[in-house]
């Protein structure tokens, strides 16, 4: 009963935040509402018994997306004031029935699917039965790396493509692309950094290691590590560099390369492609994925080809 009350309040909060994201007059406010929306979503994942998703949503959905949105907003301000009187795709009176109809469609889909009797032998059940074969006990990690490894490989490819795309459309490099190190000289910030950055590394490694048996994994860990990197960029400890160093180039493709190579070697030795031979291979691939995810996210945030330590 009390659980139902919590769910209702949470649901109302989520819908209210979504509404405010769309309705609020100032774009800045809308972005803040969107970030809070992400945090509430992560509570909803926890309520829906999906702690892996709660971690990912809090770190990636709210944290990294929020940082990206805010830094882009700041860069847009630099170029000129935001003119908010552009044309709409359609009028409110046309948009409202379309939105209502699509929401109704989602309700009908959900309602129908909830009425369906449970079918035995779904992919998820088979996964749970065969988790021991791949040596991890967290079913989500099992699916990501054991049973649907193609998805995970392509996901890394998408992340790399997003970064390459962002590089391709960016203008020629200007040193001032990062927001200036406004707080670099504040002593408190240095003290906080010297604690929080090591902790972010520790938490990332913990999440990676825990991902086999508990909530966690390469994506959540990568996002936490990236958060540490974003902090270093924001406080002027890391600067945008005109060229990516060799290490950064390797780092960005490391996840994709290690994953593909492991998969190909398995295929060469007679197994199916991407079938990881044992727990050590899962951890090897996850470590490479974590490093690549973290580096790519930080580079996307910095909108720069590379990073270097500030003098």
């Amino acid at each position: 009963m009390i659980g139902l009350a919590i769910d209702s309040v949470l649901a109302l909060g989520i819908v209210w935040m979504a509404l405010q994201t769309v309705r609020s007059d100032s774009l800045f406010q809308a972005m803040l509402m969107f970030i809070v929306f992400g945090l509430l979503m992560s509570l909803a994942w926890a309520r829906l018994h999906a702690p892996d998703l709660a971690l990912a949503e809090a770190a990636i959905g709210a944290g990294i997306t929020g940082a990206l949105l805010l830094v882009t907003w700041r860069r847009l301000q630099v170029h000129g004031p935001d003119d908010s009187n552009g044309p709409r795709l359609m009028t409110r009176w046309l948009a409202l029935p379309i939105a209502c109809a699509s929401a109704l469609l989602v309700i009908i889909i959900g309602w129908t699917a909830l009425q369906l009797p449970a079918v035995p032998g779904t992919a998820g059940e088979l996964t749970l039965q065969r988790l021991e074969d791949i040596g991890v006990s967290n079913p989500v990690t099992g699916v990501l790396l054991g049973f649907r490894a193609y998805d995970t490989l392509m996901e890394m490819a998408v992340l790399l493509a997003a970064w390459l795309g962002a590089r391709a459309v960016a203008t020629e490099f200007r040193p001032g692309v990062l927001p200036g190190p406004a707080h670099a000289e504040v002593p408190l910030v240095g003290a906080l950094l010297s604690l929080v950055v090591p902790i972010s590394i520790l938490v990332a490694v913990y999440l990676l290691q825990a991902g086999g048996s508990a909530p966690g994994g390469a994506f959540q860990g990568g996002a936490v590590l990236a958060a540490g990197g974003v902090l270093l960029c924001l406080t002027g400890r890391l600067e945008a560099a005109a060229q990516a160093s060799a290490l950064e180039r390797v780092g960005v493709i490391l996840g994709l390369a290690v994953f593909s190579l492991t998969g190909l070697i398995v295929m060469a030795t007679g197994g199916p492609m991407l079938a990881l031979p044992g727990v050590w291979a899962i951890y090897l691939v996850e470590t490479a994925l974590l490093l690549s995810i973290a580096l790519t996210l930080v580079l996307l945030f910095a909108a720069a080809p590379g990073l270097r330590r500030a003098p």
């Binding site: 707080h183 504040v186 408190l188 910030v189 003290a191 906080l192 604690l195 929080v196």
Partner: peptide
């Protein structure tokens, strides 16, 4: 506590 202190200061 640390995050609140520093963000409040900033």
């Amino acid at each position: 506590l640390l995050a609140a202190t520093v963000s409040c200061h900033l």
